[in-house]
Nucleic acid binder design. Structure first.
Length: 840
RNA sequence: GGGCCGUUAGCUCAGUCCGGCUAGAGCGCUCGCCUCACACGCGAGAGGUCAGUGGUUCAAGUCCACUACGGCCCACCA
């Protein structure tokens, strides 16, 4: 192939040029004919497209891409799909804000609706179908932005293998998997207390909770024994006294032994409640005796369930206390309730404090405290606990046997880094209930069930009507079940469609099954599943990783991947965690424009696996410099002959010595990659390369230029080494390496073979030679530098004192050393290492 | 309350699993150099009680114990 080396070529525009070429050449196209052992399959995280782009989005994906490129060059056919996580609440919220709309499911579909140009304020209400259409429109836009970023960064995904968690295939996969869970008894519905977000009007799962420190107040409140004396309890939620069903203390708490088995009456409401014992009651908290309400917190739920207590709930789905007087309150109690009926919990709390103070049942003043309160991670107000019918998938939270099985799955996984496995274990060990998958929202995969409506008009939840596979995906809110007419919807003797959707994790837990076409191409699926790696962030081990493990355990009886590679957190340049609320989010595009995509890739690849990494412009600058250096060094190495050279011409000791050290670098980088340590791989390649340009290239320059007998060896060695370096850097710097490769090689560097030590067979010499002359050259440079002379300054005489081995090694490349140092004469003697240089 | 990770040069980080010459790199800083691949460059230099304490060892940044500080995760929030 004839050389086509541009005279002057910078980095600018390389990403566009090569992205287009790779697309048209199908460089990263997955070859579907390959067999499982030839394939390396990656379960790429589908980014939440409605989220903002930030450096965290770049970090992990680039690291994974580097590894994908390594595997591809190592001979694997890499299955590297890309998904978009577009279903779920984040998209709904974005649509609401972007267009100024809100979903009102009671409104009909408006065929002529078009979204407002500007966000509408106040929001306009639209029907469910119109709302979902807007979700589709906006996510399509968002997905383009992400794809553009990924292409600019050079991710080697196969853009023909994409999916979205709301697309038809994902819906079908998700519904099919759910129906399988149902058929096997792994999914069930129940009417029970759930954590409820009063703003989003939906139930939330344990994995979506977070604790936030909130202000509150301890109230000491008197309950009355039959003899009229007081028992004080401490509570932060006096508004729930009307929901009190019992008092509880620890069974061994000596202070309350007399009370167990007796009853007390609640203040203001005068309800008689039993005093019971339970181990969860903590003698050290408050007065040691607590009121059990339905429901103030998750412990209440446990007590209520285990002690078989009645239900006296007053908090409604909207977070207000119900308007009508509860049936268990009569007389004065009903009167007291009328004061707080219809209020939000926090309003009722203040009112109750006043009333209790007035009645003398409040001891002292409420004491302000800060305490952790459970929030939905995306919510703004504390969660309430309400009773409602929801769907669950078993996850070991309520069964020891399943929990143990899932813990074993966690041990079967190879965790990179290893300590991340602990987070999985802790999460599984700490589960308190099954996985709540139903959500009372709109943009998501529907729960694919209808229920018979009895002749009495009741919904028969115990006998759901299941669609056949060939009808999936179904929307029970608009589709009619087989054997019914649409007119029978919600009619006695007819049917009722499940109104809920599944949580986004219920679908994204199936990304291997979606990307692998489990539902429509089982043969293909066997060739990519279980996948090789699941790369992801640490914060979603409890959600995405765990739920994927659960689904795969049930559906396939295996872990979904062999290895989980967990990347670190991204911190802002001041080493603070980036968050939108602090306003320190760094977006990638401006940085890519300033430093170039390879500089940003270089930064990402220098973050160690699993290690928190700060956005560091300094590191990006170094990456940019490395890319430029590769261009320039390549131009030099390729400037001597216009045709391919014969490696057997590499005969000079210095050249063969250089190849020995390069072979060692190849070995080191390969070993690092095999342990998923891309950062060590690039470090090794880079160290070797800078030594190459700084020392070897300088030493060999004269011989390469002078057309003497040593020239062919120099030319061949330079080209051979360059061919190796380009491949070593290809996983990290895909554009510049491809550019240089195209100057003198056929095909793509990204489909060339990863360098191996076998290539060096018969070409390597003693590593000592290059080391020895580099060391002496360094001393000569120091002398020139000390003399404030140019590096071109002539040296009359150099006296080397060193041990025998170093002298012997140096002599083998003496001509190169003299030329590089511009030295006229060199002498050697044995002894402690010193170099005397006498400048001309 | 439990757990995980970290603390090495002014800054950002390697090195710790598997103990061994004088603890490395880059940035920044200082000094020099337009050297025919590269001034988007090249060369040289200064800069470190390896968080602290104690222990194991011939030998500790590296192994063990404890402590402090920082970050993260979990926890039944009376």
């Amino acid at each position: 192939m004839t050389r086509n080396i541009p005279d002057k070529r910078g980095l600018e525009g390389l990403e566009t040029k090569w992205d287009e070429r790779w697309e048209s050449d199908g460089t990263y196209r997955f070859d579907v004919t390959k067999t499982r052992d030839e394939i390396f399959a990656i379960d790429t995280p589908p980014p939440t497209v409605s989220g903002s782009l930030h450096m965290g989005s770049v970090f992990g994906y680039v690291q994974t891409d580097a590894h994908a490129r390594y595997r591809r060059m190592s001979g694997k056919e890499v299955f590297y799909p890309m998904g978009w996580d577009d279903n779920g609440l984040p998209t709904e919220r974005r649509v609401q804000n972007y267009y100024g709309v809100r979903c009102d499911p009671s409104l009909p579909y408006d065929r002529d609706f078009s979204p407002p140009e500007q966000p509408h304020d106040p929001p306009i209400s639209i029907g469910r179908r119109n709302f979902i259409e807007l979700c589709h429109i906006l996510t399509a836009e968002d997905e383009k932005v992400f794809e553009n970023l990924w292409r600019t960064l050079g991710l080697s995904v196969d853009w023909h293998q994409t999916y979205a968690t709301i697309d038809e295939l994902s819906q079908r996969t998700s519904q099919k998997a759910f129906l399988n869970n149902l058929a096997r008894g792994e999914a069930y519905s129940q009417d029970a207390p759930v954590l409820w977000d009063i703003d989003f009007q939906t139930a939330v799962a344990q994995a979506e909770l977070e604790d936030r420190e909130k202000g509150g107040a301890h109230h000491d409140i008197a309950f009355r024994k039959p003899d009229g004396s007081a028992v004080y309890i401490e509570t932060t939620r006096p508004e729930l006294i009307c929901s009190c069903v019992a008092l509880v203390a620890h069974p061994e708490d000596e202070r309350y032994q007399e009370l167990f088995g007796t009853t007390v009456t609640t203040p203001l409401f005068g309800v008689e409640v039993p005093v019971v014992s339970h181990e969860l009651a903590d003698p050290d908290k408050g007065t040691g005796v607590a009121m059990i309400c339905t429901f103030g917190d998750t412990t209440d739920v446990t007590w209520w369930r285990e002690l078989d207590l009645p239900t006296r709930a007053v908090i409604q789905l909207d977070g207000r206390l119900q308007e009508e007087t509860p049936e268990w309150l009569t007389g004065a109690g009903a009167g007291a309730y009328s004061e707080i009926a219809g209020l939000f919990a926090n309003q009722a709390r203040r009112k109750m404090a006043e009333m209790l103070a007035a009645s003398g049942d409040l001891d002292g003043e409420p004491r302000q405290i800060m305490h952790p309160v459970k929030f939905y991670e995306k919510g703004d107000r504390p969660l309430e606990i309400v009773t409602s019918r929801q769907w669950y998938i078993r996850n070991g939270g309520r069964e020891e046997k399943l929990r143990k099985e899932l813990l074993v799955r966690g041990e079967e996984l190879d965790w990179v880094p290893e300590f991340m496995g602990v987070r999985y274990r802790h999460w599984v060990e700490g589960l308190t209930g099954d996985w709540l998958i139903s959500r009372q929202r709109y943009f998501g995969v529907a729960i694919p069930l209808w229920y018979p409506v009895t002749e009495d008009g009741d919904i028969d939840y115990a006998n759901p009507i299941v669609p056949p596979d060939d009808r999936l995906p179904v929307d029970p809110r608009s589709d009619t079940p087989d054997g019914f007419e649409e007119s029978q919807r919600e009619q006695p003797g007819g049917f009722s469609g499940d109104p809920d959707i599944m949580d986004t994790w219920a679908t994204s837990s199936l990304t291997p099954q979606i990307a692998g076409h489990w539902v429509d191409d089982p043969e293909f699926f066997t060739r990519v599943f279980p996948m090789d790696i699941r790369p992801q962030g640490p914060e979603i081990i409890r959600t995405w990783l765990f739920s994927s493990t659960v689904r795969s355990h049930f559906e396939h009886g295996t872990i979904p991947w062999h290895t989980a590679t967990i990347n670190g957190w991204i911190l802002d340049p001041d080493r603070k965690k980036m968050s939108k609320s602090i306003g320190n989010v760094v977006t990638p595009m401006p940085l890519i424009e300033e430093y170039g995509p390879e500089a940003v890739r270089y930064w990402a690849c220098n973050g160690r696996p699993g290690v928190d990494t700060a956005v560091d412009f300094g590191v990006m600058k170094i990456g940019r410099r490395l890319a430029i250096k590769i261009l320039n060094a390549s131009r030099f190495a390729l400037s001597f002959s216009d045709s391919a050279v014969d490696p057997t011409e590499i005969t000079e000791p210095l050249d063969r010595s250089m190849l020995a050290s390069l072979a060692a670098a190849v070995e080191g980088a390969t070993a690092a990659f095999d342990e998923y340590d891309y950062a060590r791989a690039i470090e090794i390649a880079e160290k070797s390369f800078w030594n190459w340009t700084d020392d070897y290239v300088e030493l060999v320059k004269s011989r390469a230029y002078d057309d003497g007998p040593g020239a062919p060896s120099a030319h061949a060695a330079l080209q051979f080494a360059l061919g190796v370096y380009l491949r070593l850097f290809a996983p990290f710097l895909p554009f510049v390496t491809e550019e240089v490769w195209s100057w003198w090689k056929e095909g793509s560097v990204h489909r060339s073979a990863w360098p191996s030590t076998e290539e060096f067979e018969g070409l390597t010499g003693e590593p000592d030679v290059l080391e020895a002359v580099s060391r002496i050259l360094g001393e000569i440079r120091r002398a020139k530098s000390d003399a404030k002379a140019s590096m071109r300054a002539e040296v009359e005489q150099v006296g080397v004192v060193a041990d025998r081995e170093l002298i012997d090694a140096a002599r083998k490349a003496e001509i190169d050393l003299l030329a590089a140092g511009r030295v006229e004469e060199i002498t050697y003697s044995e002894g402690e290492f010193t170099v005397e240089s006498r400048l001309a």
